[in-house]
Design a protein around this nucleic acid. Sequence first.
DNA 1: CCGCATCCGAATGGATACTG
DNA 2: CAGTATCCATTCGGATGCGG
Lengths: 223, 223
Amino acid sequence: MAKDYGQFCGLAKASSVLGERWSLLIARDLSVAPRRFKDLHEGLPGVPTSVLTARLRDLQVAGVVTRVADERPGGGVLYALTPHGRALETILDALGRWGAGAMAAPGPQDVITDASLAAALRASYQPRATCTTTSYLIHTGAATAWAEATPTAITVGLGVPDLLADLTIHSGPELRAVLAGDLSPAAALSSGAVRIEGSSDVFERFVRTFHVPLTEAAMEVTR
Amino acid sequence: MAKDYGQFCGLAKASSVLGERWSLLIARDLSVAPRRFKDLHEGLPGVPTSVLTARLRDLQVAGVVTRVADERPGGGVLYALTPHGRALETILDALGRWGAGAMAAPGPQDVITDASLAAALRASYQPRATCTTTSYLIHTGAATAWAEATPTAITVGLGVPDLLADLTIHSGPELRAVLAGDLSPAAALSSGAVRIEGSSDVFERFVRTFHVPLTEAAMEVTR
DNA sequence: CCGCATCCGAATGGATACTG
DNA sequence: CAGTATCCATTCGGATGCGG
């Protein structure tokens, strides 16, 4: 069980619940979709099963995570966020934006997982940046995620969605430079760093809709 | 140096910077005011000096914290947040609100520090809840902090401010129940749980201006 | 297989004592 | 005041094993 800090303080409580190694990333993965133990284990490279078990138990005790039966054939158990855990979503997004601003170039060992890609899309979504509802399918490295952006809401998911996307993007980690404004959409396409299936106009819309801001103003958490 | 997670992900980066034990609370204390090493050590009960040294070094390497000279007579060194670190302020507040919703009653060992009280006031501030600029001085347990609330902004600080406050509040941890709406201002005053110097009208304004939302999980525990 | 427990070497945290 | 140095307890990471 997580240690506390001996302080009567909301932040100390939050830190004792989420401050253990891997906890935030478990919450991130579950904030995108309920997952099996095995999904979580594969999406968190290096986590020992014993630690994953312990974290999931701690998060259940803290009321953040719950176990639900998998409805699909084959059954099994899914881990999912409780309502209290879902309240973390905007905070995780804000933390992700904050960390993204300080991210170094990816090392050779760094991976991108489906869930981290989906979470990054959700975190970088800019409301009111587009007037048109558009669906995207994004491949970066070995990760695949999709997003459907309306003018005021974003939905993201893992892997390939059921419906055909308006735009499909193939890229490596260079996609982040585009979303940060460091690499223009046109340059990304012409250099071959990003390959798309769909119109370049829609790719420009994508870049307007998803943005990693560099100013502090954009790091605000929506209350 | 903090371990990373082998993921090219903003949240993984944030977690490697802030996920180590004590880091969030150090950031919280510094988000209220620059502090000396000794202040931080006293405000974080139980942290060994060696760990505090290591965290401050890691946070400096991460560009969150910087060392500045203390201008006041006596000199010395102050730790302060960098602009990048100050961008965490709204995130710390949101995390504090999230954690406050799940907080249990304070144990006998739990302390309230000046910085945690000031941070809690900042986090619980409700913009547009009042039309009048008001200054408060709050004592809870051994902690003292002040706040000046305008209709759209909040300023908080440690200890006793230079100017006389419009309202001075003496309380124990029961103050949280008032801010959570579990205890009416009138009941808090008449029961003696809260003692004020100033008008009870201004105390009502205080309770409207600072509010901790209760989550479902916490309400279940309270019932 | 999936979820979880066990075992072990390495790394980290906690408490105390000590130094520029 | 602002840290280092030291020792010990705990945790983590990785491999392996067990029951359904």
